[in-house]
Design a protein around this nucleic acid. Structure first.
Lengths: 228, 228
DNA sequence: TGAAGAAGTGAACAACTATTCACGCCGGAA
DNA sequence: TTCCGGCGTGAATAGTTGTTCACTTCTTCA
């Protein structure tokens, strides 16, 4: 009488859930958040519209999970890059560069996650996403301040401002065109990283050095990403 | 037989048009762009819903004009402040500070104009708005570069990044709370202005001086704005 | 193998608002 | 004063999508 889910069924359910999330992510990467509609997503995931609601209570929940997902990936990449750096200032440079490269490599997705209008309320999820990344950057700024490399400052506000600068300059409506070209991409990443480092108080000359160190390793793997 | 509009009628029509725009602006300032709906706006303007369509072909047109309107005011304020400054660097500082104070004094409106989700497409108008302000800031950066106060750089990208930083730090979802308090407001404006000036290459010490000069005159009249 | 319940389906539904339009009214010309 | 046409009205319309649910199909277990 007691129906128990077999391991196989559990696996299938999890796979379906992932498929729906992946379909949503693909849709967002292709056509922005506007393309994340239940019917099209369900088609991509090879399920019926109603099935989506077996896994997600509402569209808002689906998109919220999507945002959390992408955000988690980005945070991990930033941490990895920063942790691999030799010192606090390099770590900050690496973190900033990583964010820049990430948003550039998936511009539509990044724009959708960050700021694109959505008909349902996903502000909580977006807030959490921003808070995570901003917190990470703030921690890196703080480390550099404690190491005596930067002047004391409101690190939370500075981190938020840096992210705003990166996003607006790289994926906002005024972002330069042709960033698919690897050369231009590298230039843009260098420029915004330089701006960001100087903004928090790194001297111009030193900032230029840090940028060169940080951009090369970050941009190399990015070429593959951009191609995808 | 030939019906001609009397001067009085022309004036009344213009007044009504302004009233509708003003009503839309009030609605946006109160409740963000989400509150700019035809029915509520028409009530505020003391006209019927259908009347709105005698003056604006669609909601998109109404909001586009609203954005252009607000943007025009801001651009004028920025120019005025910058032109009154004694030199290129001061002018840049004044411009940045003015933008900061403006967005802070009408946060909901600013957020609505800049980035809040809207059901109709207003991207063209938003793009134009950003372009205007960004162009003005870029021109000020350029002047400072030509005067030898700043290192050579991509001024358009820098201006875009600065605006992104200001907006995200001051009206974005991670913006600090309690910015209605004049003291906190001044601090926030100072902090972001300092970040912005350093970002484009002003030395820390000099930047601090410029900030003090620029913030005082800009913040004084702002107290009245914030109260409103 | 068959009963019981879970998972999947997709057409129908619901809710929200921008937009329309047939009608009444007011201001202008003669 | 009277006729005419544009202006104002607001209830009705329409289009868009998220969401539901009665039904079908599949899985488990005795």
């Amino acid at each position: 009488m007691v129906y128990r889910r077999t391991h196989q069924v559990v696996k299938r359910l999890a796979a379906r859930r992932s498929a729906i999330l992946a379909a949503a992510r693909d849709a967002a990467a292709d056509g922005g958040m506007a393309a994340v509609q239940i019917a099209p997503v369900s088609v991509r995931a090879n399920v019926a519209a109603g099935t989506v609601y077996r896994y997600f209570p509402s569209k808002a929940d689906l998109i919220s999970e999507l945002i959390a997902d992408v955000s988690r990936d980005e945070l991990a990449a930033v941490r990895r890059a920063a942790d691999a750096a030799p010192g606090p200032s390099s770590a900050l440079a690496a973190a900033v560069t990583t964010v820049a490269v990430h948003v550039l490599s998936q511009r539509k997705l990044a724009w959708g996650i960050l700021a694109e209008p959505v008909d349902v309320d996903v502000s909580a999820s977006r807030l959490a996403s921003r808070r995570e990344i901003s917190g990470e950057i703030a921690a890196r700024i703080d480390a550099a301040v404690r190491a005596g490399h930067l002047p004391a400052q409101d690190t939370a506000l500075a981190a938020t401002a840096l992210l705003g600068a990166l996003h607006e300059a790289l994926v906002g409506p005024l972002a330069p065109e042709n960033l698919d070209d690897p050369g231009r991409l590298r230039d843009a990443v260098q420029t915004v990283t330089l701006l960001a480092l100087r903004a928090v108080g790194v001297m111009d000359a030193r900032a230029r050095g840090l940028v060169v160190q940080a951009v090369l390793p970050a941009v190399l793997p990015a070429k593959a990403l951009v191609g995808a």
